[in-house]
């Protein structure tokens, strides 16, 4: 099981193969992609920032919790940092298990907890020239000024 923060392109096929095991009869993967809109705004690019060591520690905790709650064989999560374009894979979660129920449930648990707890921040750049940190009330004056 591993949770990693990476500035490299995510390769889902390579990650998926790492989950293979003779005892696994199911594999569920989730990919989070960069979308061209959010809350009515037209998004042209995203930037992710993380505190790498704390993010990886907290992420590893989430994977361990998933293993305690669900009958998993293996689980893995990788999250990008840096500047991403529309369509890029921002986060990948994959789970293998003997049966599909545990695999679906664990995959959902891992992505939901990751979004809530792991110190990763997302800055959206919008078509009209402004930008903003998602979920944050704190923003620099300049970034909330419409061009």
């Amino acid at each position: 099981m591993s949770f990693s923060i990476s500035s490299d392109v995510i390769d889902p096929e390579v990650l998926k193969r790492s989950l293979a095991a003779d005892s696994a009869g199911a594999c569920v993967c989730f990919e989070g992609w960069v979308r061209d809109h959010n809350e009515g705004e037209s998004v042209i690019a995203l930037e992710y920032e993380a505190h790498q060591s704390i993010a990886e520690q907290e992420g590893q905790k989430i994977l361990l919790e998933a293993r305690q709650r669900f009958a998993l064989v293996d689980a893995r999560c990788e999250h990008r940092v840096g500047k991403l374009a529309i369509g890029d894979c921002a986060v990948w979660v994959g789970v293998s298990a003997a049966h599909r129920g545990a695999a679906f449930d664990a995959c959902r648990y891992i992505i939901d907890e990751t979004k809530q707890r792991v110190p990763i921040w997302k800055k959206e750049h919008y078509r009209d020239g402004h930008s903003g940190w998602v979920n944050c009330a704190t923003n620099v004056a300049e970034s909330t000024t419409r061009v």
């Binding site: 989070g32 992710y48 993380a50 505190h51 060591s53 704390i54 907290e58 999250h79 921002a90 986060v91 992505i111 990751t114 979004k115 809530q116 707890r117 792991v118 110190p119 990763i120 921040w121 997302k122 940190w133 998602v134 979920n135 944050c136 009330a137 704190t138």
Partner: peptide, 29 residues
């Protein structure tokens, strides 16, 4: 908040020389 690279409670007591890290609301995924 994290103190000296470990997540901490807001009620944690500070000591001289601590490095205190402030994390705004997260938005992974």
């Amino acid at each position: 908040v994290a103190i000296n690279d470990e997540l901490a409670d807001w009620s944690s007591t500070l000591a001289a020389g601590d490095e205190v890290l402030f994390f705004p609301p997260v938005a992974g995924g």
